[in-house]
């Protein structure tokens, strides 16, 4: 099978107190009077990702595990081309549809239907595709009745439903799902999981980040575990991978408590 994502030594450096890298006059005057902030003047750097390498084949469904701040989101942002790596390179074959957040670019004054077309275009869908799928998306979202009201009158649940419906119907070869199965009520969550399962079965590649291990167990065929920006574990044995991840989280917590 052909590799669809190849990461070679991908690293990302952030400057922690970026706010201070550009200083206003007011800040400088304030500094004269306070001794504390002198320390923060030096910009601290921080490697959010440190030399990550892996190869993902077409059709794999990967669960990316890691604690908050481990670098999962940074990795997903690099794969979805939002931000650039500081070092290393990543090769993609195909289009990435990323669901880092649903309903990105919804405009409150536009109606649900207008937003559907706008959002799908931002996600990179062609007009033909959108028109073909519009009914399916609308049906999936379950907000048919409110489609012609401005989205500012939508409840937050309805907005996420519509957003997820649009994003999950995208036909990119690589689908990135970050923590968004947990949207909506129980019934809609079930629908989401089902939809993602369908996408996996259709042979597309999925990268899934979720802190709830049940969907990971159900959906993924491989685990990539990241801690402190480094690749800790990369295994196709999903159960063992999850177990190992949970163990490290627990032992870390204990270490902190004592």
């Amino acid at each position: 099978m052909q590799p669809i994502i190849i990461a070679e030594g991908v690293s990302k450096k952030y400057t922690v107190n970026d706010e201070n890298s550009f200083r206003t006059l007011r800040d400088s005057i304030a500094d004269i009077f306070s001794a504390k902030s002198k320390r923060s003047r030096l910009p601290k750097t921080f490697w959010a990702l440190d030399d990550i390498s892996f190869t993902i084949n077409a059709g794999e469904s990967i669960g990316i595990l890691g604690r908050n701040g481990a670098g999962k989101s940074t990795l997903l942002k690099i794969i979805s081309r939002i931000t650039k790596p500081t070092k290393g390179r990543l090769t993609l074959r195909g289009r990435v549809a990323s669901l880092l957040e649903v309903g990105v670019g919804f405009h409150p004054e536009l109606t649900g239907r207008e937003n559907l077309f706008l959002n799908a275009a931002i996600l990179g869908e062609s007009r033909k595709n959108i028109q073909r799928k519009a009914d399916e998306i609308i049906h999936f979202s379950g907000v048919e009745r409110f489609l012609d009201t401005p989205i500012k009158r939508f409840s937050s649940g309805m907005r996420t439903r519509l957003g997820f419906a649009i994003a999950s119907h995208s036909d990119g070869e690589i689908l990135i799902v970050d923590e968004i199965i947990a949207v909506g009520d129980f019934e809609f969550q079930k629908k989401c999981t089902h939809k993602i399962n369908e996408v996996i079965k259709s042979g597309r590649t999925i990268l899934l980040v979720n802190h709830d291990m049940n969907p990971v167990k159900k959906l993924c065929s491989r685990i990539i575990h990241i801690a402190h920006g480094q690749l800790v574990n990369d295994t196709t044995d999903v159960n063992k991978g999850i177990k190992k991840y949970l163990q490290t989280t627990i032992s870390n917590d204990e270490g902190k408590n004592t």
């Binding site: 669809i4 790596p85 990543l90 074959r93 042979g203 597309r204």
Partner: peptide, 23 residues
Amino acid sequence: ITRRQISHRYSPRNTNRKTVIDQ
């Protein structure tokens, strides 16, 4: 096996488009 069978339905169109992401 099941995946391979089903993948007939889905025909990837953009896999030839290679994207390289670096700094």
